[in-house]
Design a protein around this nucleic acid. Structure first.
Lengths: 201, 201
DNA sequence: TCTTGATTTGACCATTCGGTCAAAGGCACG
DNA sequence: CGTGCCTTTGACCGAATGGTCAAATCAAGA
């Protein structure tokens, strides 16, 4: 039922990898099929044998991405120890930024351009998940197990700070100068920051 | 010495405003001169009468931007009350995000693409200013007037969280749903967050 | 008014864009 | 071997790209 030969699977994978590199740097409109083809080591007509259009490649990347991107939040467990659960979420999100910076930049590019291709997912799928977890966090605050903070903006702050290290990597490294490991230092800093924010009074 | 007529000043301003709108949404490569011309209400050859090339428009925007963008940090006063100085910086930076979101996105786009046109400014001008202010912050921590945190990552966190509300505006609004004022809520949240982080132990 | 220089633009150019297509090349299986 | 299908590509297309240029228009001072 897969309907895919070995060659098909391999080439589609090659193309998506190349497209990720190009789209994540230049955005959808700034990227060209020739660039992607060259990066993939294939001819342009060959790309279009595996995908019907430039847009279809972009859409396939984005769809595969949103799920992966939200997994760390889904894993946040209402039954766990509150501060530890949130800190673990921060760590997982920072790991994603370190290990998949291109995916982070692809997402950032899409949002910067007004999210034309995933606006709907944001206000349905994403909003539902965040609202659900916001209830959990509010519950923890009600029980006095964490300090009371706006749960939506808490989640925004986690996104902002972790994704910053992927999206603005060039700037971070330029400012820190050589001899630094931005992600290791970030883990320390974020740990301190969110511990102080959440520790119940 | 200005060498500019009234018309020149007005049209260059019109063009830069239009270009800001287009570049900030699509990035340098994704933006087209036709789009900018249309947005400015001028013909394409007329654009190129005032600017020698697409790139020159982009460069002029970026150069004008970096200064404005760093002003809030420059204003941070070593002689002031430490926590209040840092909170005021956060507020100023958030105001910039609210009032000049296009500028924020233009900058984000440039960094996402690897900062090809301002990489040097980052590792000189920007780094110097940040290093200087990092010394001030460290001094405050030495004196026990704020908690000890990594000053560079403190500054990164301020950038990340304030710019997030401009750059990811679409996402923030999609998740919050209608009836919210993201920036007003953010001010509250950031105030709490940085107060807790910095309050000396 | 006339003149001069600043301003504007229609027509155009070479190149690149996303995409098509027919033909050629490769591969598995009888 | 041969057949049939999967895969690959060179040549090409119309549209859009950044940019040019000569000619037309405008505005202000003599």
């Amino acid at each position: 039922m897969t309907g895919q030969t070995r060659i098909q699977r391999r080439n589609r994978e090659t193309i998506l990898t190349a497209a990720l590199a190009v789209f994540s740097q230049y955005g959808f409109r700034g990227a060209t099929l020739d660039q992607i083809a060259k990066q993939a080591g294939l001819s342009k007509p060959n790309l279009l044998y595996y995908f019907p259009s430039k847009e279809s490649i972009h859409v396939e990347l984005l769809e595969g991405l949103l799920d992966t991107w939200l997994d760390p939040l889904r894993e946040m467990n209402a039954g766990g120890e509150p501060v530890e659960e949130i800190l673990a979420y921060v760590r997982r999100k920072l790991d994603l930024s370190r290990d998949y910076p291109q995916e982070s930049r692809l997402f950032a590019n899409e949002i910067l351009q007004g999210a034309p291709r995933i606006a709907e997912n944001l206000s349905t799928e994403l909003k539902e998940l965040v609202d659900e977890k916001a209830v959990v966090i509010s519950g923890w605050a009600d029980a006095g197990r964490i300090a009371r903070v706006d749960p939506h903006h808490l989640i925004f702050s986690i996104w902002a700070m972790t994704q910053h290290y992927a999206d603005f990597d060039v700037q971070v490294r330029a400012v820190l100068g050589p001899g630094h490991d931005p992600f290791a230092e970030a883990e320390q800093f974020l740990n301190t920051m969110f511990t102080k924010l959440l520790r119940p009074v």
